[in-house]
Amino acid sequence: MPIRLEIVTPEKAVYADDVDMVIAPATDGYVGILPHHAPLLTTLGPGEFRVKKGGVEEVLAVFGGFMDVRGDRVIVLTEAAEPAEEIDAQRAQEARDRAQQALQAGPMSAAEEAHARASLQRALVRIRVSERRRRRL
């Protein structure tokens, strides 16, 4: 029995399909969802969102938001979700280097530091997701 998965961002509906298993990056660690999971509402951190369907695994990078599990229906509402094949690995690496340099460059305001840390984290998630895709190919 499949799970109905929908991933929606404010800009568009990213994903809608029947899948076998979902592994989501909750704030406190990864949670796996199989059919007949108990009703769950969890916040999501930035991380890899993995979808298993018929032996094939798809990976998306998601950034924040939350996931609602109820019955055999999973709704993910997130600020941004990027399928692995849409991620520009090179750009992500450049973004990572920029953020790391900014953090090493020395003192900055709390807001600037938070900003740099956030973009570093986003870049790392993108890199990990795109690498996972490359390994599979």
């Binding site: 909750a26 704030t27 406190d28 949670v31 108990a38 009703p39 769950l40 509402l41 969890t42 916040t43 939350f66 109820r70």
Partner: peptide, 13 residues
């Protein structure tokens, strides 16, 4: 009557 689980906790969610 459904028992909803909240992660990390109801308040945060």
């Amino acid at each position: 009557p459904i028992q909803y689980l909240f992660e990390p906790d109801p308040q945060t969610v």
